[in-house]
Design a protein around this nucleic acid. Structure first.
Lengths: 344, 344
DNA sequence: CGGTGTCAAGTTACCGATAACATATGCCCG
DNA sequence: CGGGCATATGTTATCGGTAACTTGACACCG
């Protein structure tokens, strides 16, 4: 006799009140179908271990009765949560992140990629990134500007697979996916040189790993022509910060004919400031932004910008973490960037 | 004899290889402490049922051995996942949402509020919103522009608690939290009237519930002065759409001295278009935006805009869904808006 | 015709925590 | 001094799946 039938007896004796109907369990289906629980389990998982006809019969039965898998039970038994904790910086104070579309774009892509294989995204803010959250997940994706060392260490200690979005200083222990900032900077420099500019300014914060790489690419290309760019560190990532950077350059009477800004917002602020000072863009000064945001494209004049493909990046992050979770290996990877030339 | 000791015997007989060390379980701690599993469970939960001294001893032991609660096991036993599925529209095609800081701000606030009580956010895109995801959560928060009927229905059918961010058409079955769009529109109208404007234009899509409410508030206030606003429906939510709306008004030779746009982006586009046509802002035409984005504040000229507090909104959404999950009641609620007057 | 495969299903034994109920101990009070 | 009660701990029985191993039936083969 099957275990299904056995538990039926027990149950009938125990709870004669059959009025309230919970969700059916596999045991319920098993009883109804006259098979054992495990056969139901296999049938619903489309296992070839169950005869085609039985399988279909059970699947139909499950549909009829509105059966819903108890996810908690499965996760528990299999000792995995099918969740990937994704840590995002979301404090309003961060300024930049609240504005950028990039975390959302990445998140969307990650969520979609993971959903395709039955995984979910456990969203976590950096403040809320307690051990218990990390432990509840099979792996962690860290979306930060650069890797926050504390988070990285925490994951390592706990033995939880980790993938980071951002800039990798070569030789990092963990897997890093990010766009090729060096190439992005280099392409900006090449474009400026090809349009005859010789006195470029870099607007960005070299303390920030991603921006430091952009500067490196930018500088290296220029160096081959014997040019050294002027560097300004803006006070934040807002339009105002970009404008402020330009203001200080003009106040110093620095001569320049091109600006490479590390974000579209900075670039737009720079253009605003230039124009306020009567400097024409792009006639007098050429400007290149970064991120190729819709906003920059809608700006007057439409912004030339370095594009990074966040959707692909998110999908890649997802695939890498899944690989690690499955015990496979994964390598760091750089996403290509492309320069979108518009009118600045 | 305690169950702890019993299982020790069994285990020792079964797996003599004691080299590999898994995470300890409560049973392990119980054995080590010479108490029963349940006492460990209680002690770690700080239950007053356990004597102070015992409790501390067990907690210390847990710390020493690096004990980690098996979340899956607890969730399974308690029949709740401690997860709230949060559904966000994240497709790039949506245009607006990819740009707005609002989903992230809401998400951040929700995540933080929920984390405080041990709940997590299961991030879901609208495409990925399969039954299984919803079922895996104790409740659902829907962040959409307006409620997507299909999603709402799905939750209802599945008997999963649901809270929606957006505009409630009075008499909705589900709980809705949103900012007071009617009031937002009204305050814009009042401000325009108080600065002497008499021929206002509304730029927004009245098919969209939130915007329809803004229009209602706007229109009602104006009606008291016998004024009826001109309405234009922009083609999207981008700057270009805002500019296009203005272009069509000017082409029609419509006379107006004020614009109330349903987003800062639209407002900025409108200003761009006005200036391109030689219309001065705010001298000739006054402009009010919506959302009070950092971007609008940094615009030239800084945008006057209706602010909604997303952080509070997110926290409120979180508290409402928790109430429903706990079987308490929750009512729809409107968040106040405030007009931030700047230079337009 | 026994041996050996192959398929289709079944048995057993958990995964780790916790609710509900049960027990032991000591103390107070009429 | 026995009943009642508070306190501290223990027992039992799951929650609902699924991995690992077992069984039964039949076919094919030398």
């Amino acid at each position: 006799m099957t275990d299904g039938a056995k538990s039926e007896d027990v149950k009938a004796g125990k709870s004669p009140a059959r009025t309230m109907r919970r969700n059916p369990t596999m045991a319920d289906l098993a009883r109804a179908a006259g098979v054992s629980k495990i056969t139901v389990s296999r049938a619903l998982a489309d296992s070839p271990l169950v005869a085609e006809t039985t399988r279909r019969r059970i699947q139909q039965l499950a549909r009829d009765r509105g059966y819903r898998l108890n996810v908690s039970a499965r996760n528990f038994r299999r000792q995995r949560s099918n969740l990937i904790a994704t840590i995002v910086e979301m404090t309003p104070s961060a300024g930049r992140t609240m504005l950028d579309p990039y975390p959302l774009a990445l998140l969307g892509a990650i969520a979609q990629e993971l959903a395709g294989v039955g995984y979910g995204v456990l969203l976590t803010t950096r403040q809320g990134m307690t051990e218990s959250f990390i432990h509840a997940a099979d792996g962690v994706i860290l979306l930060g500007q650069g890797a926050h060392q504390s988070s990285v260490k925490l994951c390592d200690e706990m033995g939880v697979p980790l993938v980071v979005w951002g800039a990798g200083t070569d030789g990092d222990a963990h897997v890093i996916v990010g766009s090729d900032n060096v190439h992005g900077g280099a392409s900006a420099a090449e474009h400026l040189l090809s349009t005859g500019r010789r006195r470029p300014v870099f607007v960005g914060n070299a303390d920030h790993a991603e921006m430091a790489q952009r500067l490196r690419g930018f500088r290296d290309v220029l160096a081959r022509r014997g040019i050294g760019p002027t560097c300004v560190t803006p006070n934040g990532w807002t339009m105002d910060a970009g404008a402020g950077a330009i203001d200080s350059l003009l106040a110093d009477k620095t001569a320049f004919d091109a600006v490479f800004a590390c974000s579209d917002l900075l670039a737009m602020g720079a253009i605003r400031a230039l124009r306020e000072h009567g400097v024409r863009v792009p006639e007098d000064v050429s400007v290149i932004g970064y991120d190729d945001t819709p906003l920059g494209a809608a700006f007057t004049p439409p912004l030339t910008s370095v594009r990074q493909n966040w959707l692909d990046g998110g999908a890649l992050l997802a695939r890498k973490i899944l690989a690690l979770v499955d015990g496979r290996v994964a390598a760091s990877e750089k996403m290509p960037t492309s320069l979108i030339v518009r009118q600045t």
